[in-house]
Design a protein around this nucleic acid. Structure first.
Length: 600
RNA sequence: GCCUCUGUAGUUCAACGGAUAGAACGGCGGUUUCCUAAACCGUAAAUAUGGGUUCGAUUCCCAUCGGAGGUACCA
């Protein structure tokens, strides 16, 4: 139950129906919702579902239930019945109790985690080591981090994991290009972040490859496919992959060196973004495990082998196609690696649930993976969760890393922070700060704007990102929320400076306005919101909730005096209310991975 | 071709099957001797189309038209 008040009301409604109409109804059949803004009440019971029981008109039924509730409770002083909607008013006293309860619970809305709590492993990020992180990864990382925090808040033990795609033909392409044209360039010699340096060679490879293909086409009159097959560059890359798989010392040491540069670069990006992992897996050490699982499946007759030696899973009985698991040359594919990684993970941890944060382009892949793991005898296979999110598109369309038309994660974050600095300076917000404080604040604001912008969108949906226009600091944005938090902190500082001592509980005798009871009601909703976000894997639900709360609070702040209120009980109440709004803002933003400054 | 997702103001996003579809940005017009104006207030502007189920449909079902993704040796 989301709040004690809601719980009380539901019980009363059930009791009233039992007494009035001699019928038992379940809690879930009682539609209790927040009353629309246009009516001055708090909760609304939708009585349409009870008409069959009452055998009366909607309004008459609502009136009967309403009268019962008022006469059988102390917390509902009045009601109004409009059509099939029964609008209930809750007493000020009840709301003050609710606030006191929220106030006394520092962890309000969160469920405690213990040793016995379910263990959830969340895979996210999963970069390739041939290029720096871009906007698409940013969405992945932010969603992964946020959903980890949300699941923790819902009472789960969470292990964050990352599977680094550190082998394969794409890495060989970067390596080959570096070998051919790099002249021994290193991050130190060029002053570039390692991941960016490697990414440049990946792009260079593609450029040279395209040039070669075009030349073959025009000189020899080949089709594009023929030219690509004959490309010496591509053949060299394939040869390099074979050498890598064979363990060639030279190739391996180049690979180790270049991947090391990339990891150093990634680490900086992750740190700035504020994400981290408890356990990192590398594909280079899991793909062999996958191969052996596939061979095991082949022996058991779960999979089939073609004449050319390739191994397949026949999923036609599951309504799907046939799926390749090992190529004719014995090398592994994406699916093979995921099988191996899954096995290692379950060997390492007593996992109750596995969550993969991967884009929706992989929906089919995970559908297949789930079936395959199940067939291979992993009990948890069929319950794996693919947290599938939509693509981030630019106004011009999709990003293509090979063509270099991507929004780079590092550039983007730096740009956000410097914009935050400019805006803050223009507004004169940093005048009283030391330069260290100022840097901290603009970092929080810049990243807050970016993170909120991405997380407020329903993860399932594709989203558009316009680098020039998208991110604002006004309106429904991260900084708007951060600003409200900073304002409340300012009030609390002033209250302390004035020697105002807050009571641990507000006396239930003061008179509240609709604005105030509305705010308490919204605070109470936080608990249900956190649950909802956990059940539906949606940080957006948290983001939208906080925005609504903050919007409501700003109106209150504008229309009411807090510190200047003369009635000291009322003043204490408003300070306490503000303090708890700040607490929930901070808690909710933490679930999104967004920090909130105390001044800005 | 087949499968999946998706279509809401000019733009970016909201709305467990509930009341007059809600915000923000942008536009237009206001608020500061008063706790931070990154705020607050007002104003114009939208459910792709056609059916169906329901007391009630943006939401569920069917069709049509758009958009995105996947579809056996790329990850």
């Amino acid at each position: 139950m989301s709040s004690t008040i809601e719980h009380k009301i539901k019980n009363l409604v059930r009791q009233s129906i039992l007494e009035l109409y001699s019928q038992e109804v379940t809690d879930s059949s009682i539609q209790l919702q927040k009353t629309n803004k246009e009516f001055t009440a708090h909760y609304t019971v939708v009585v349409f579902p009870f008409l069959k029981i009452s055998k009366k008109a909607p309004e008459a039924t609502a009136n009967e239930i309403g009268n019962y509730l008022v006469s059988h409770s102390t917390c509902i002083p009045s009601f109004s019945a409009i059509k099939g909607f029964l609008n209930l008013v809750v007493t000020d006293e009840e709301w003050i109790n609710e606030l006191n309860e929220i106030h006394l619970n520092e962890q309000f809305g969160r469920t405690e985690v213990s040793e016995e709590s379910p263990l959830v492993m969340i895979e996210y990020s999963s970069p390739n080591t041939n290029k720096p992180l871009h906007l698409g990864h940013v969405r992945n990382n932010l969603l992964g981090h946020s959903i980890s925090e949300i699941l923790k808040a819902n009472g789960n033990q969470v292990i964050k994991t990352n599977i680094v795609n550190d082998r394969g033909i794409h890495i060989c392409k970067s390596m080959l290009a570096w070998q051919k044209w790099g002249n021994g360039a290193t991050p130190q010699s060029t002053g570039k972040k390692g991941d960016h340096l490697i990414g440049d060679y990946y792009v260079l490879f593609d450029k040279q490859f395209k040039a070669e293909v075009a030349a073959l086409q025009s000189e020899k009159g080949l089709t594009k496919e023929e030219a690509e097959a004959q490309s010496s560059l591509m053949n060299e890359a394939r040869e390099m992959l074979r050498q890598w798989e064979a363990g060639d010392t030279e190739v391996r040491s180049l690979w180790t060196k270049m991947n090391g540069w990339v990891y150093d670069g990634f680490e900086k990006t992750y740190q700035l973004m504020g994400v981290s992992f408890d356990k990192i897996y590398y594909e280079s050490s899991t793909y062999l495990e996958g191969k052996s699982k596939v061979m095991e499946g082949l022996e058991k007759g779960i999979f089939v082998q073609n004449e050319d030696g390739s191994v397949w899973a026949d999923l036609t009985s599951n309504g799907l196609d046939q799926k390749l698991l090992l190529r004719a040359d014995g090398t592994s594919v994406y699916m093979t690696q995921d099988i191996g990684t899954a096995k290692l993970r379950y060997d390492d941890y007593p996992i109750d649930k596995m969550v993969y944060v991967v884009g929706n382009e992989q929906n089919y892949h995970f559908q297949v993976l789930s079936i395959l793991l199940d067939k291979l005898g992993f009990g948890w296979g069929k319950d794996l969760v693919h947290f599938s999110y939509g693509m981030v598109e630019l106004p011009e369309g999709k990003m293509k890393s090979r063509e270099g038309t991507v929004v780079d994660a590092d550039d983007l974050m730096e740009e956000m922070i410097s914009t935050a600095r400019e805006t803050s300076e223009e507004l004169g917000k940093l005048d009283e700060c030391t330069s260290e404080e100022a840097s901290e604040i603009v970092r929080m604001i810049g990243l807050g704007a970016l993170k909120y912008f991405i997380l407020k969108v329903d993860p399932k949906k594709n989203m558009t990102f316009n680098p020039k226009e998208s991110i604002d600091f006004n309106g429904n944005t991260g900084p708007f929320i951060q600003y409200t938090h900073a304002r409340i902190c300012s009030i609390l500082r002033k209250a302390e400076a004035q020697g105002i001592v807050l009571p641990s509980e507000v006396p239930a005798t003061i008179q509240l306005t609709n604005k105030e009871t509305g705010l308490i009601q919204m605070l109470a909703e936080y608990k249900e919101t956190v649950k909802d976000a956990g059940n539906t894997f949606s940080p957006a639900i948290i983001a939208n909730y906080i925005y609504e709360l903050v919007k409501e609070y700003n109106q209150f702040y504008h229309d009411f005096s807090i510190l200047k209120e003369e009635n000291s009980d009322l003043r204490a109440f408003r300070i306490l209310l503000s303090k708890n709004v700040a607490k929930i803002i901070k808690s909710g933003m933490q679930l999104l991975g967004i920090e909130v400054p105390e001044r800005m």
